[in-house]
């Protein structure tokens, strides 16, 4: 088996996701006035706030997708991180943050080790892991939401900075930037894409495949937990069961951001664009004061559409049509 051509995930590669984000931003500004509503700077502030939490889940999930795996437990580790932070961060939010993120990183590393060591199907093993994390979260939280009494932390995290950002969103942006730099300026990104592109060949070529897979799951759980901590501290509430919405958001954001379903493709910039696009879409419906089910309807449809769009049949058809177009260019005949 040959290693597929690996690509850098620079800004240029994710131009379509970026254009989509820009398009949504224009729609959010231009369309609501037609129906008697109006978007404001606060709309974009809210979109960034959502991206700060859910986008981090997408970033974590995306890392496992790039190495050719899938972490179904991200929504559960998101809830677990938030619950641990609230339960143990009463005295000091830093302690809560460290326990929340640290415990989930260990949890993710264990899942990753199992996947890497025995070649277990990651969707199956993380389904079990998802139930375990959800069980621990529910047990800690007595099967209900838990409030966080240190409201100052929420105020600090949500306080608008130049009207658009907050400490919460800036933290998320910093994490996206860190992953972007790690993937583009170090060997790690190349190793991850090589692992996703062709595992056995990568192993033969000296890539530390097992360590990369294990680490990706650790990072996935850690990033999802950080999203959960930011959400719990920011809203002063930790939820026991987040449902499937965070997972739906994360998967759709990754696919919109150009992360390949077969591994080896994608990066932090694309995932950031995908997350922001979805967050803007949600804000668009909020601005129009649409019912909650309209947003679910659109999100569900989008997930199906992008999943089918990234399916082997569509990709094959697209590649064939591109190859036909390339070969159909007329060659000037020699006189």
């Amino acid at each position: 088996m040959m290693i597929r051509r690996t690509e850098r995930s620079g800004i240029g590669e994710a131009r379509w996701p970026f254009f989509l984000t820009l398009l949504l931003a224009v729609v959010v500004v231009a369309v609501p006035p037609i129906f008697g509503h109006a978007a404001s700077l606060f709309t974009f502030y809210n979109a960034l706030q959502s991206t700060a939490c859910l986008g981090l889940i997408a970033l974590g999930l995306g890392l496992t997708m790039i190495v050719g795996e899938f972490d179904l437990s991200v929504a559960s580790t998101y809830a677990l991180g938030g619950m641990l932070a609230v339960k143990f961060g009463g005295g000091s939010p830093i302690v809560g943050l460290l326990i929340g993120v640290g415990a989930c990183v260990i949890f993710g590393l264990v899942q990753g080790f199992i996947v890497a060591r025995w070649g277990i199907n990651s969707m199956a093993i993380t389904l079990g892991g998802s139930l375990v994390a959800l069980g621990i979260t529910g047990t800690l939280g007595d099967n209900k939401s838990q409030s966080y009494e240190n409201y100052d932390v929420g105020v600090l995290l949500n306080n608008p900075i130049v009207g658009l950002f907050s400490l919460r969103s800036l933290t998320a942006i910093a994490m996206f930037a860190l992953v972007f730099l790690l993937m583009n300026l170090t060997k790690l990104g190349r190793g991850m894409r090589a692992t996703g592109g062709g595992r056995r060949a990568s192993r033969t070529a000296g890539v530390r495949v097992d360590a990369i897979i294990t680490g990706s799951f650790g990072a996935s759980a850690g990033l999802a937990a950080l999203g959960g901590v930011l959400q719990s501290f920011g809203t002063a509430t930790a939820t026991s069961n987040p449902g499937l919405f965070p997972l739906i958001f994360a998967v759709t954001a990754c696919l919109l951001g150009g992360v390949g379903l077969t591994g080896g493709r994608g990066g932090a910039w694309g995932i950031a664009c995908g997350s922001l696009t979805l967050a803007l879409l949600s804000e668009f419906f909020s601005t129009l004061a649409a019912a909650q089910y309209v947003s679910s309807l659109v999100t569900g449809s989008m997930l199906i559409l992008v999943t089918v769009g990234a399916s082997p049949l569509i990709i094959r058809t697209w590649r064939e049509s591109r190859a036909r177009r390339t070969t159909a260019v007329p060659v000037p005949s020699a006189i």
Partner: peptide
């Protein structure tokens, strides 16, 4: 409670 049931089920499935 239900969360403990989920936890046990998760361990069994894994």
């Amino acid at each position: 409670s239900t969360p403990v049931q989920l936890l046990v089920l998760g361990l069994i499935v894994s």
